[in-house]
Amino acid sequence: MNEKTLPLLPESASNLSPQIDALMMAELGFSVFFSILIFVLVTVFAIKFRRKSDYDVTPHIHGSLILELGWSLLPFAMILGFFVWGTTVYFKAYAIQPNDAMEIFVTGKQWMWKVQHPEGPREINELHVPVGRALKFTMISEDVIHSYYIPAFRLKRDVLPGRYTTMYVTPTKVGKFHLFCAEYCGTQHSGMIGTVYVQEQSDYEKWVAGGDESMSARGEALFGQYGCVTCHLPDGKGRGPSLVGVYNSNVKLQGGNLVKADDAYLRESILNPRAKVVDTYQSIMPTFQGQISEEGLLQIIAYIKSLEKEEGGQQ
């Protein structure tokens, strides 16, 4: 990374990199072919058909339908191939969740990247991940729009305030890589950078062991601290619905609509509890807008999620 040489390709360190590089090379070939074709034709014509005298006579050529159709449809057919190819890879990175993905939670803030691992470690402007393991990034911003960009992974996605965005990637190479903010976010935009450490699984485990309590444990602490625990009793007899097993279940709302209790819904229900009230309960929960940080929200959601995992586990 610190070599003074001039690399023409960035390092390739994820499952996406070879795919995107291959697509890039294919399109580059196409582009170079057409650019050179035009350059050569224009130059050759300019020389070969240069004006010999002011009385030169030129033929009258109106045009040709076949040529027009040919040079519009053929390249279009070619680039349609790129369209299909490109869209497939794009979906892989943004929409199709790989099996057994490891969770990474990213919070963007002017001007730093905060990362939480479910097992506990938190880091700023750094990211430690094991090699060969599928990753799922769940990202949110506390202020303006940022964009989490790792060139060696050939991957970025905007980090929005008020809404989770996600992306998937599998690192394939051990090493240190650049991490950038790619969406202009204010004065220290170019300082919102960091380093990604892709480690061997064993090194990663060692690193994780150095972290403190897990996200869900922190979430549980917040759950008590904000008084959630007084209403959301596990047996369902409190003033609020029980949260045991609620994660990813279908919740019946007032008015009869069903909503899936995913993390977007849970986040909304904490910040704006009156928007979608659970059936048979009263709309009495106060809003926590502006009181819990985005990081804290992720921790509380992690705690609610853990209530599901422990098979019927009650506290």
Binding site: L16, L23, S31, S35, A46, A93
Partner: peptide, 28 residues
Amino acid sequence: LGFIGLFTVGGVTGVMLATMALDLHLHD
């Protein structure tokens, strides 16, 4: 003539950026 050449390059690189997967890497 400069226009024709440079616009061609601008155009074909536009096709690259229009490809969604490449935009993952090249955007911004």
